[in-house]
Design a protein around this nucleic acid. Structure first.
Lengths: 133, 133
DNA sequence: TCGTGACTTGACGTGCGCGTCAACTTGATC
DNA sequence: GATCAAGTTGACGCGCACGTCAAGTCACGA
């Protein structure tokens, strides 16, 4: 076994990112792989964080925001640092996400109405007589 | 009545954006207000489009993507241009949004678990004996 | 020993989404 | 007629999230 760490190349293939991006995230303190000499070795924890990074990006969060949020997820595994402050931050993030979810639901509903309209127009175009119904 | 159009300043106050942003969106062909001499007058249609622009930004879409999507929403009001192609594009966008919705739901669930963990840790901290249960 | 391939550290470049001047016009008010 | 607010067109600047070189290190097999 390879000690369950991964090289930068393996990470890139696994997550479809470039080495440049991984080093950039490290510089911005979103990742901190083990440094053995010059080389980097990414632990399972790094992988979990990268998943969250990419997810956060998809939802339009900046890397700075994501870095702060990663602190929250991180302390699940034992650290007892300012728990109540962390709870507050987590709840703010939760409110943020649920608001986004609601807005997304609205957007989806509206889009579905648009699609229905287009379907109707197509139907009337292919069979104009049915417009009487 | 003021012809139901708005000046750039009114738009900025209504949507909390800068004039610079509105002119930028116009340059990128996301908006096209009426030009009366030098000045711009934004119609209800511009306002509807701006709403969608800002929403799209919140979901992490680029302005170029949003511009393309606006074409879809637009043709609801009469134009019959490539209806079936439009339907396809709309359905792709729909798939995109629902995927985002599902991923967001996952993220929210995970965050809620984290919050539960933090609450538990706080409870045990304030009343350590209950850890025996 | 000599590639070769994977990795490294700078350092500059790039596209996006505007911010921020400067210099000007235009209509209303004193 | 002067002023002032609101708008205009360039044009340069900036922060973010990397891309893209150049130049070097290091382990490995032929």
């Amino acid at each position: 076994m390879t000690d369950d760490t991964m090289t930068i190349g393996e990470m890139c293939r696994a997550f479809d990112v470039t080495p440049r991006a991984l080093r950039f995230y490290e510089q911005k303190e979103l990742l901190n792989p083990i440094r053995e000499g010059q080389n980097r070795f990414y632990t399972p924890r790094d992988r979990a964080r990268l998943k969250l990074i990419l997810r956060g990006k998809r939802f339009g969060f900046s890397l700075a925001e994501i870095r702060d949020l990663l602190e929250l997820y991180h302390l699940g595994d034992g650290q007892i640092t300012q728990l109540s402050a962390t709870l507050e931050a987590a709840e703010r993030h939760h409110a943020d996400l649920t608001a986004k979810r609601d807005e997304l639901a609205t957007a989806i509903t509206e889009l579905e109405q648009q699609i229905q309209m287009i379907r109707k127009m197509l139907a009337e175009r292919s069979n104009p007589r049915s417009a009487a119904e």
